[in-house]
Simulated assay, not measured.
Amino acid sequence: MKAVRLHSYNELPTLDSIPEPTITGPWDVIVDVGAAGLCRTDLHIIEGQWEPIQHPDLPYVLGHENAGRVREVGSAVTNVAPGDTVIMHPLTSCGLCAACRVGQDSHCENATFPGINVDGGWAQLLKTNARAVVKLDPSLEPKDIAALADAGLTAYHAVRKSADRLFPGTHAVVVGAGGLGHIGIQALAAITSAEITVVDRSEEALELATKLGAHHTVLATEPTAVAAEVQDVTGGGAHVLFDYVGEHGTENQASELIRNQGDQYVIGYGGRIERDTIEIISREINIIGNLVGTYNDLVELMTLTAQGKVTLHTQVYDLAAAHDAIADLDAGRLVGRGILVPERL
């Protein structure tokens, strides 16, 4: 089969021919990949940022946002059958460790992470397990929802965690209306009562944010001007700020955009937070990290998607055009999410 594999860090992955995966265990599921998302994490993987954390064996297949149709299942699998349309939770969790027992799949002690530390979905076939697959409403097509498996799930997870803080009269500020942020805006509109303000450097992204439910938008120009405008629009700063960028200064500007006792949700990454401890203490502000969401978060998100309350804005590329997709993402030319679609076997 055809697959896009990373052979060396700081070099572009290549389109290779590799053997098809096979069923080796009772809980295995093999999926015909219908679509796989392109994520900024993939850029960080290529740069080697994840090597110290995950230590993947190179070469391996990238792609951790995957959807498709079930081709084959192991002997113990009963929740899906060949032909079912599915989206995959990013992790293949074990179901037995302490984290899994309380539904925190993202912290499974025995998980693999396709596309991060084992072969992922930038390929014609993907091997996963029964605990990772979510059967989809028949109306949903893989190319329209694949990136919700990570970008959507991560964006939704942060909003879901903050929902009890965002009651009527509160203000949420979203920094970055791109691949993650445009989903976070929709999640905020769907499950909270907060007034939503979106900050982005792209006028096109802000136009999209307004269509998706933002009440106010702020063009990210000079930092002092941005802070003043956000403070004015929100009447003193955000109760909860969602930083879907996490680098290039957004991670530290956040303190100027939230009010005392406000929450800074860190979702994007790549930067470094530098904050005087006296400020954190005196203002009683909270800095909260967010990993990818749980299996149940993904089920909830797919329910909202089937109801038409969350839609993914995408640009589709053939699998063989992976280099073009990577270049467009890196240069900031993508509005929404890049999707790789492999040919069917």
Rank of each mutant, 00 (worst) to 15 (best):
A187E: 10
L188F: 12
L188I: 13
A189K: 15
A189Q: 14
A190I: 13
I191H: 09
T192S: 12
E195T: 15
I196Q: 07
V198F: 13
D200R: 10
D200S: 14
D200H: 13
R201Q: 11
S202R: 14
S202N: 11
S202P: 13
S202F: 14
E203S: 15
E204Q: 15
A205V: 09
L208H: 11
A209R: 08
G213D: 06
G213H: 08
A214G: 07
H215R: 13
H215A: 14
T217S: 12
T217F: 15
E222F: 05
E222A: 07
P223A: 01
P223S: 01
T224M: 11
A225V: 12
A228E: 13
A228L: 02
V230E: 10
Q231E: 07
D232C: 06
G236D: 06
G236W: 12
G237K: 04
G237R: 05
H239W: 13
H239Q: 12
V240T: 10
D243A: 05
Y244L: 15
Y244N: 15
Y244S: 10
V245C: 08
V245E: 05
G246C: 05
E247L: 14
H248G: 00
H248C: 03
G249A: 01
G249Y: 03
G249T: 04
G249N: 01
G249H: 01
G249I: 06
T250M: 07
T250F: 10
E251F: 12
E251A: 14
N252M: 08
N252R: 06
A254M: 09
A254W: 06
S255E: 06
L257E: 03
L257Q: 05
R259L: 07
N260T: 08
N260A: 06
Q261M: 14
Q261H: 13
G262K: 04
G262R: 04
G262T: 08
D263M: 09
D263F: 14
Q264E: 07
Q264N: 06
Y265H: 14
Y265C: 11
V266K: 01
I267Q: 02
G268S: 04
Y269F: 15
Y269H: 11
Y269L: 13
G270W: 06
R272G: 00
I273K: 01
I273Q: 01
E274P: 00
R275K: 03
E279K: 02
E279Q: 07
I280W: 02
I280G: 00
I280S: 00
S282E: 02
E284P: 00
E284C: 04
N286V: 12
N286H: 14
N286F: 14
I288G: 00
G289D: 01
G289V: 05
G289Y: 05
G289H: 04
L291Y: 12
V292K: 08
V292C: 12
G293N: 08
G293E: 11
Y295K: 14
N296P: 00
N296M: 12
V299W: 09
E300D: 15
T303L: 10
T305D: 06
T305Y: 11
T305L: 09
A306N: 04
A306P: 05
G308F: 05
G308A: 04
K309Q: 12
T311L: 06
T311I: 12
T311M: 07
H313L: 07
T314W: 02
T314Q: 03
V316F: 00
Y317K: 02
D318F: 08
L319S: 01
L319A: 01
A320G: 01
A320Q: 06
